[in-house]
């Protein structure tokens, strides 16, 4: 981009096109896909600023400006919904995010290849079981006479129904999430681990490094780019805590700690009328925050570790 080498725009375009002609050819189907299935429907986002009327369609409905955004933000539950959504995401980042990394590291240290493979196969299983069934089991286990409650009573807790008690809801939610997802989550890290050159370990052993040194100085740096990428992607989901599992676990007594944006939107859909406009507005609001977060995270990690999404 120095002033001396400045050529005409057309020349630069031609050179780029000819040097990367196959790359453009390869990009074509992918770009077409994104245009048709992702960008073309985006005109629909305008119903967040309109009062959607089936008869008039998305384009023809009347503009109402920021009305639905204002209703949500000024609504009585705004603060609580934001707090619960952010807290649950935050706990997930702290507890659920590192869990598969740790498990992958431990799996990697197993000596027997056969045992390792068996463990791997088994810990993937919960991923395949429907959330409805998983939640049914959670209900059973943490009820007044459930196994987990029994265990906690042995440790000195007062007997209660854990799902009925606001104090335990988030713990039950996060821990059961780890229980179901930790095995499946290791896949990506185990795959990254195979990319590490075995010679590095041999050299380290010759230098007298013990197991913990090897993990700290070779394994972790080896999968650091994957961890960073996953972390950025996870940060971009902070506002979108899913509703299905919470709906199956919460009750009016735990709304105080369990009600998140997506469950609120779900309940809105169930009450009078079909609130496409209001729900789109809330969705847009969440997305904007998510997108801001991922932009920031990307800038920060690019400065710190030279790994970034773009």
């Amino acid at each position: 981009m120095t002033a001396g080498s400045k050529k005409s725009l057309w020349q630069r375009v031609r050179r780029e096109l000819s040097a990367n002609r196959y790359v453009y050819l390869m990009a074509l189907p992918v770009v077409i896909y994104y245009i048709i299935f992702c960008y073309a429907p985006m005109y629909g986002a305008q119903i967040a600023f309109k009062r959607f009327d089936v008869a008039k369609g998305i384009m023809g409905s009347d503009w109402v400006g920021l009305r639905y955004f204002a209703e949500f933000i000024n609504g009585p539950y705004f603060f609580r919904l934001m707090r619960n959504t952010l807290l649950i995401s935050f706990y997930e980042l702290i507890f659920a995010f590192p869990a598969p990394i740790l498990l992958a590291l431990l799996l990697n240290e197993l000596r027997s290849e056969k045992f390792k493979r068996t463990v791997q196969t088994i810990i993937y299983l919960p991923h395949f079981i429907s959330i409805v069934i998983i939640c049914g089991m959670i209900h059973d286990f943490v009820s007044r006479d459930g196994v987990i409650t029994d265990l906690l009573v042995l440790l000195g807790m007062e007997r209660t129904n854990l799902l009925g008690d606001p104090a335990f809801f988030r713990s039950v939610y996060i821990i059961s999430g780890i229980w179901q997802g930790v095995g499946w989550g290791t896949i990506i890290y185990l795959s990254a681990l195979t990319g590490i050159d075995p010679q590095q370990y041999e050299a380290a052993i010759v230098d007298g490094a013990n197991r913990f040194h090897q993990i700290w100085y070779i394994t972790l740096p080896g999968i650091a780019p994957t961890i960073t990428t996953m972390f950025i992607l996870q940060l971009g989901k902070v506002m979108s805590v899913g509703f299905e599992k919470i709906i199956l676990l919460y009750n009016p007594n735990t709304y105080e700690v369990a009600d998140v944006i997506s469950t609120y939107v779900y309940r809105m859909g169930l009450s009078e009328g079909t609130q496409f406009s209001a729900t789109t507005a809330i969705g847009l609001f969440s997305s904007a925050i998510n997108f801001l977060l991922i932009l920031t995270a990307n800038q920060v990690t690019r400065k710190l570790s030279h790994t970034s999404l773009w």
Binding site: F37, G44, F291, L309
Partner: peptide, 17 residues
């Protein structure tokens, strides 16, 4: 492309397309 992870037109326009 990353933008599409966050912003979409919603269920109805996607269905119509």
């Amino acid at each position: 492309i990353v933008f599409t992870m966050y912003f979409s037109g919603g269920m109805i326009p996607r269905y119509i397309v």
